[in-house]
Amino acid sequence: MTQENTHERDLGLDEDLMAYVDGRLPEDKMAEIEARLARDPEARAATASWRHHDNLIRQMAKDADDLPVNMQIAALERELAAKLKARKRRAFVMGPALGRIAASVLIFTAGWGAHGLFGSASQLRGAEYPQFVTATMTGHQLIQQASMQQAEFQSDEMEAALDWMSAQMQQKIDSPKLERLGYTVETARLLSTSEGPLAVFHYRNEQGDQVSVSVSPHAPDQSDYKLRVVRMDSDSMAYWTDAGLDYSIIGPVDVGTITTLAAAVRE
């Protein structure tokens, strides 16, 4: 290989020069690269050519914007958007946490009184269970109520998530704080349900157990819910009202653990 070829190869593999040409060079490196280009005519010529060729290609590509509207493409766009929207909703409903919860709630809704209750079973038997609990848990009910996901936040966005959720609910929302019990928050979602906004936090511990916590404004015409803990097949659930907010928590743990988790959220 000649020295010239070696030099050519090096220029083509220089990611700083690439980033410079593409306008993606960090500010703090700009002066360094510009100084290098000032004393390296070959690199200067190469970057000028790369940029010029890009401009020519982009210029040609932009001619596509002047092409006549294609009605078939427009129809396909609409069809694709509808499919993707359905996909988005289905992915949410059948997401890892809610999918499991939806399965659990079938047992929950069908056999409320049949399962052993932790706490005041006699009060619950035959009673209407709270709307917010159902909205949290059932995928099918979310659809029936035309529930829509307004936003999803990742674990590193919790501060922004809480601020935004508080603004949406017009009430201060605090983190469920399950970290001290070995759970790590994975995502937080805000849903818009027919009953109002509903925040859902998804947690997971080292064993892979997923726990979901929901928070929603308490309906002013309803009385507050005292803490209740319910066992449903392999899952347990707790729900209660506190300071104008309805809470529920569900996970594949025993009733003692779900009570501990609920206590952590309530603190």
Binding site: E8, R9, L11, L13, M18, S49
Partner: peptide, 17 residues
């Protein structure tokens, strides 16, 4: 991708030249 982009750009330059 970066390798192909860089090599491609250099090859394009040489061919155009």
């Amino acid at each position: 991708f970066m390798s192909r982009l860089g090599r491609g750009r250099e090859a394009l330059r040489q061919i155009v030249s």
